[in-house]
Design a protein around this nucleic acid. Structure first.
Lengths: 193, 193
DNA sequence: TGAACCCTATCGATCGTTCGATCGGGTCGT
DNA sequence: ACGACCCGATCGAACGATCGATAGGGTTCA
């Protein structure tokens, strides 16, 4: 077979949850997109909600681990931030569907399933907070409201998943580079250009 | 009567659509929140989808008109941007539910209803584009990718509706003021502080 | 032969919507 | 002034459709 059924289910779920929302996606839509009967879906998943949680945990977990590896051993806060922004923007541009599911559908999870997702997200954002705090201590960044600035910066970067299209004129490298510049400006770092 | 039924329906819809999503909100949930029977709802609305579209058009229409009035006659691009950011941030902080509905549920509208909403949003964003373009021409702002910068700035400001809580330490004025500073930084305007 | 895989058929619940009816307060003609 | 009439507001009940999920039985292949 070209693509295993389990993988087809996963991909169909990501695409449909991202475009039509979790509640807007029926189990039959999912089956049709995965080229299976609705009954056969349940050979590869638990409940629909567990499938959603699985997608979220996978996606966030991968991002968190990649981010940790990317900044491992990097001491300069500006360089840490640069790497975080680059990874974040590229991930959001390359996998907009996964990202949109994670960003938009957290609220539909029951508290038990939501907890693990929120915990992963908090761990990830802590990487940003740490880098920002160190940059402030080192006198590299300047902001009166570090908390607000951090969240504003994250929201700005999250937005990429909502609008970027690879069919546009902008390459991924250009995009990430520009966002790094924007991030440094937001953080009040001295402009290198 | 304390609050007219029509108004109760509207408020209930905004709250529920914002917190549970359009597809996650049943007509019976809506009826319960509005203290009506599900049948009586239809005395005050068309279909559930038309109710959603009405909310969106009202909310965006008000924002657009207020924005136009706010920048009317203001020639300095930086001042125009300052006013737009202030209005935008305050609106998103004060009416997070309306804003979240507009931002998150556009995709569920059928093309016919979506068109008018998208048109309003485009008109509103054009106000930002115009101010940014004039600031660039005047040499006040500096960015290599005006389009990307504009959308990144808007996404940053939109984020306010997703996290701001009036129970926090930050007042609305502080919040708006800080976002104005962030916006000026993003746009590469000379720092005033 | 038995596990993996996939189906048709079906379940009870819930969905958005509509139906027919009731209630109370105006408004009319006389 | 008083029935006759109408109308906005609201309801319980029900509609057909679709929901997420399951039961149970084939087929394939090691």
């Amino acid at each position: 077979m070209a693509v295993a059924s389990r993988e087809r289910v996963r991909r169909a779920a990501v695409k449909l949850f991202a475009t039509k929302g979790f509640h807007g996606t029926g189990i039959r839509d999912l089956a049709q997109a995965a080229k299976l009967s609705s009954a056969s879906l349940y050979h590869y998943m638990g409940t629909k909600e567990e499938l959603l949680a699985e997608i979220m945990v996978d996606c966030l977990g991968r991002l968190l681990e990649t981010a940790k590896a990317t900044i491992d051993g990097v001491t300069d806060p500006a360089e840490r931030l640069t790497r975080l922004v680059t990874l974040h923007v590229m991930t959001h541009a390359r996998q907009p569907n996964e990202t949109r599911v994670v960003d938009n559908e957290i609220g539909v999870l029951s508290p038990r399933l939501r907890r693990s997702v929120v915990q992963l997200r908090d761990s990830y954002e802590q990487l940003w907070s740490d880098a920002i705090d160190e940059g402030l201590r080192a006198g590299l960044f300047h902001t009166e409201q570090p908390g607000v600035t951090r969240i504003a910066l994250l929201e700005m970067c999250n937005g990429v998943a909502r609008w970027y299209s690879p069919r546009g004129a902008l390459t991924l490298d250009d995009l990430a580079g520009h966002y790094v510049q924007l991030a440094m400006r937001v953080l009040g770092a001295p402009d290198r250009g």
